[in-house]
């Protein structure tokens, strides 16, 4: 089961790479970037997961050693937390670029844009 979870997360990563490489529509490429981000975040969270783990937040009256014995790994979560917001701003940047391209050329298709530029 553990292997299946990792392999499926990598499959999600592959779908993102496929959308990036094989698609010609700008919207699909932005979607591919978003899916890549999801897959990486998912993989990092799953690596830090512990069977029956609690969130890494100290409860009232709990000792730190007890928390360390039963909590999930907090380090990947700290990495992913910032990555989520960065993903939003990168999506906003990509959407801005796509809107400028559409205003200029009237299409989302990369082939058409390449032909029109000439």
């Amino acid at each position: 089961m553990g292997i299946a979870v990792y392999v499926l997360a990598f499959g999600l990563l592959l779908i993102g790479v496929y959308a990036l490489v094989a698609k010609k529509n700008i919207v699909r490429i932005i979607i591919g970037i978003a899916i890549l981000g999801y897959a990486v975040n998912l993989l990092l969270v799953l690596v830090g997961y512990r069977h029956g783990g609690t969130p890494p937040i100290l409860a009232d009256g709990q000792t730190s050693a007890d928390l360390a014995a039963r909590s999930v790994d907090p380090l990947p979560q700290a990495m992913v937390l910032t990555s989520i917001v960065i993903g939003l701003s990168v999506t906003a940047l990509a959407v801005a670029l796509a809107i400028r391209l559409y205003d200029k050329y009237g299409t989302f298709d990369m082939n058409d844009i390449r032909n029109l530029r000439g």
């Binding site: 917001v85 701003s89 906003a92 959407v95 801005a96 809107i99």
Partner: peptide, 13 residues
């Protein structure tokens, strides 16, 4: 920083 920046780009977009 996050709130103001994202509001700004949302307004622009």
């Amino acid at each position: 920083s996050v709130a103001a920046g994202l509001i700004g780009i949302f307004l622009a977009l």
